[in-house]
């Protein structure tokens, strides 16, 4: 009834044996792909590490902090008392630059701002999502150095984000603050290195100052 009258008979070519290894390789490749995607989620490409926007004024932290030795708090004056470290007003710049390099072309936007009263539009480098509430004073006053989050600002011509600033990154420190604690007097000293084992120092400081960073959601998300 179903005799095939034609002489042709369909068969798969012999090379189709590759299907089996191909399936196996495909399955392995799929797993690898998943692993790669997950790894990518942790990588600097997925976070903003390396972000270094061009600022309206070519302000050099390397010069001001690294060479001239200015303290962070001279400009970021609110860092010890409020949530925000504060970007300095133009007046702060003019404290010096009304005298020093008062005619520099690089400082035109600063002088314009000073004249018009409109602030310089600095670009925020270390920008957290709006649903994250970070308090500078809570960290600085417990002995977490600026360098822990911002890196060696004193060596940067252009400020660059060096840490992922991701939730996991925050959590690691909240779980093990001893890795980053330092004596309060060295908080703004970016090149400070502990004279002893950081962990030992950190544990001692943690004990002394009763530092137990909360890991509740509401610590950062409100």
């Amino acid at each position: 009834m179903n005799e095939d009258k034609s002489n042709d008979i369909f068969i798969f070519p012999k090379w189709t044996w590759v299907l089996r290894p191909a399936v196996a390789i495909g399955a392995a490749g799929g797993l690898l792909y998943a692993a790669v995607v997950v790894t990518f989620g942790f990588s600097p490409w997925a976070t903003d590490v390396g972000y270094a926007p061009v600022q309206p004024v070519p302000y050099s932290h390397a010069l001001h902090v690294g060479q001239l030795g200015m303290d962070c708090r001279y400009c970021h004056s609110a860092v010890e008392t409020t949530a925000h470290a504060a970007v300095p007003p133009t007046q702060t710049c003019m404290n010096c630059h009304s005298m020093i390099r008062a005619a520099s072309e690089k400082l035109i936007p600063v002088r314009e701002s000073y004249a018009t009263g409109m602030p310089v539009e600095w670009v925020k480098v270390h920008d957290l999502p709006d649903y994250v509430y970070f308090n500078h004073s809570a960290h600085v006053r417990r002995g977490v150095g600026c360098v822990s989050c911002h890196g060696r600002i004193d060596t940067m011509e252009v400020v660059t984000q060096v840490e992922p600033l991701s939730m996991g990154w925050c959590l690691r420190c909240h779980r093990e603050p001893e890795r980053h604690l330092r004596p309060l007097e060295f908080v703004t000293q970016l090149d400070w290195v502990p004279g002893e084992d950081q962990l030992a120092l950190g544990r001692r400081l943690r004990e002394q100052n009763d530092i137990n960073p909360p890991q509740d959601c509401s610590t950062c998300h409100r």
Binding site: N2, D4, I9, I11, F12, P13, K14, T16, R20, V23
Partner: peptide, 18 residues
Amino acid sequence: NGLPRLYHPLFTNRAFKR
């Protein structure tokens, strides 16, 4: 079972289709 194996000599036989 060694599957998938799309080609097999037996498939060359017409009667085997049944």
